[in-house]
Nucleic acid binder design. Structure first.
Lengths: 387, 387
DNA sequence: CCCGATATGGTGGGGCTGGCAACAAACCGG
DNA sequence: CCGGTTTGTTGCCAGCCCCACCATATCGGG
């Protein structure tokens, strides 16, 4: 239990981080507002902002023309030239982005692949893309780190991917490979866990401290967890794997598999089949389902929604979140009957934790994983802005 | 998002709290050891300890006679005269204790009741008991606060008991009633959540940062959660209610109820019936079960263990704890086949989170809830030792 | 157009805190 | 008895935040 930096220097670090975090997460704002929100002294905020500006992390702009008395307060904004490299290897494509402080995707690239790619190849591709950018869209930028969102189990401690079945990866030092190829330190995390962080900071769960996030993709159901305002990884970082849970199926006629695993019962393929289409993205699937006159489509959605509701009710009882965020095809299940889903969850959960609950669709779309991955990289910067 | 006290004064508070927490949780130790464990300077530790001793929170004792070179370092121990009042109202009895810094139950009282008692009556009884003690066993003690462990849903914010079915309480301001009757500030929490904290600090989950705790009592199954080293209450403090979850029952022949709620399927009454006894405490129940030659007893235990394993496997997938602690009759289920339970959980959970997992029986016995309740009261003292 | 009110930026001094270095004290082993 | 080792003690120093005072910029009214 060694806790370092409990001295005066630590106060400086924490306060610099608090100010930087504020403008990063909550957006540009005046020094006067920062003073009020942090509780620090005017002169202290002035000094902190000057230090951050000197390090190139924030920029001070002309005050907004407010119609108020008093001396105008300059606006402090996160620098657009401070970026993190975000990487998201998927089955059929490699997505790379540069995300600014403030959470904007400054530039992105997507390279399709026809077969699973080795870790070293991914790292080489990332290095090549970043090198290309450095002369163009990232000219003059400072790259403070990198993050990777991997669809699989990631050991948080060292960024080793233990198992990513759809990529064919097993015991791969992804963090090390990316760091070596690019010369930038990389943080690696599970894609759904990082998606949860993105939705909490910039999306549907903004300002919520206790969030359950579930994402439905073609390959299964992943999840992320934020409790007490902190991303929960568990002992080794594997937390959030709802997909392989045994679902509490109440109506035996709803069961389709003997084991009753959640992602076998609540499943994108079954929705595609019920809608009578073979391949479609989420928007097309939602359309096909809503236009289907066949009762089978609606019946299948209702069945999956019932099982999803039971799973969510269990999560509500155990974790008491203030909001549940659903992404991917799970958002389709929700959006087709939002009130019904919320009512079903409340009916099966205890009354008290159900009271304050809200269930929402994810908000960030295609940027989610890039923002989440970048956030993992920004974490160290926010913990110690001057490095 | 107002964060106060980010100045030098806050550093002092944090460091005083860190030193006090160390001797409180980890036991008496020399100043030299504290210096090493906190990373603070010798002179700083000396000053902090002197301040704490001046406030009567710790005592400095003669150095232990160690056979080592160098000047002996005095032992810093939490004061036995600093206590918190711990209250645990149950269906058939009211239990009150005074717990010292360091986690020792200095004095306790148990008053049987034959029918459910009103909140105000409980508060009056507690006040009377504490007043009795103040002239005797607590003479010269400083009471820094109180905590209550209630079997029901407790709103963390204000200590209001939303629902405690077995006590017949509903929307009761327990914290307020106890504070008014005793003149001491009270923190109120769910019994299982506080039990989890006790087991983490002084019991089976000592030094673990990610703990799932489940307790099986006569009235059902409650749970507590510690993640990242902090007690998890969720948005309103209701977290940990595993008992009313729909269990993922794999073998349909194991199902006994249509709904499949965990505490209806995994149940103390069913064990009593299978053992062929009518009433027994946990020790007697364990004995009766182990001595039963009837195959029914073993079959029922195996059935309940299977369902428990499925529930625990779900928790392992979602939360990735490093240890699961089982109390009450759930400990009986574990102890009758520890390896079988662990193997069953590992078989149904993902490999990675199952690797580092351990499943243990709770260790603190009858002191657990008193220690946990007192801990809730000590929390504020540790956050700001000089108040 | 001027002037008071208001709100904020800027600057220098002071208090608090922890770190550090030098010295003293207590113990061990020979 | 003496050197080596570890730790307590003391005085000084640097860092950081707060505060008081003054300067600056805007608004609204005469």
């Amino acid at each position: 239990m060694t806790m370092r930096a409990t001295g005066v220097e630590g106060v400086r670090r924490a306060n610099l981080g608090a100010v930087l975090r504020l403008v990063h997460h909550a957006g540009p704002r005046s020094r006067a507002v920062i003073t009020a929100e942090t509780g620090l002294n005017r002169s202290t905020v002035s000094d902190l902002v000057a230090t951050l500006a000197g390090a190139g992390l924030v920029e001070e702009r002309e005050p907004d023309p407010t119609r108020r008395v008093g001396r105008p307060s300059p606006i402090v904004a996160p620098s657009d030239d401070v970026v993190a490299i975000a990487v998201n290897p998927e089955v059929d494509a490699l997505e790379v982005g540069a995300v600014t402080l403030g959470g904007r995707v400054r530039v992105r690239a997507r390279e399709g692949v026809d077969r699973p790619v080795e870790v070293d190849d991914v790292a080489a591709s990332v290095a090549r893309i970043v090198a290309d950018w450095s002369g163009g869209p990232l000219r003059g930028c400072r790259i403070v780190g990198g993050g990777a969102a991997v669809p699989g189990l990631v050991r948080a401690r060292d960024g080793v991917v233990r198992l990513a079945p759809h990529l064919g990866w097993r015991e791969q030092d992804v963090a090390g490979a990316l760091a070596q190829a690019t010369g930038v330190a990389f943080a690696v995390g599970n894609d759904a866990s990082l998606g949860a962080r993105a939705e909490r900071l910039f999306g549907a769960a903004r300002d919520h401290a206790d969030v359950v996030y579930l994402n439905g993709g073609a390959s299964g159901i992943g999840g992320g967890l934020i409790l007490h305002g902190v991303a929960i990884g568990g002992a080794d970082g594997y937390a959030g794997e709802w997909g392989q849970n045994r679902a509490g199926i109440v109506l035996e006629s709803d069961r389709r598999t003997a084991e009753g695993m959640l992602e076998d019962e609540v499943n994108r393929s079954r929705l595609l089949a019920a809608a009578g289409v073979t391949a479609a993205d989420d928007a097309a699937l939602a359309l096909a389902l809503s236009e289907s006159t066949d009762g089978a489509a609606r019946a299948e959605m209702d069945r999956q929604r019932r099982i999803l509701a039971a799973t969510l009710a269990n999560a509500v009882n155990v974790l008491n979140p203030s909001v549940i965020v659903l992404g991917g095809f799970l958002a389709i299940l929700r959006d087709s009957d939002p009130d019904g889903l919320l009512a079903a969850v409340r009916a099966q959960a205890l009354d008290a934790p159900g009271e304050g609950l809200d269930i929402r669709a994810a908000a960030l779309g295609a940027d989610r994983l890039l923002i989440g991955a970048a956030e993992a990289a920004f974490e160290q910067l926010l913990a110690d802005p001057l490095g």
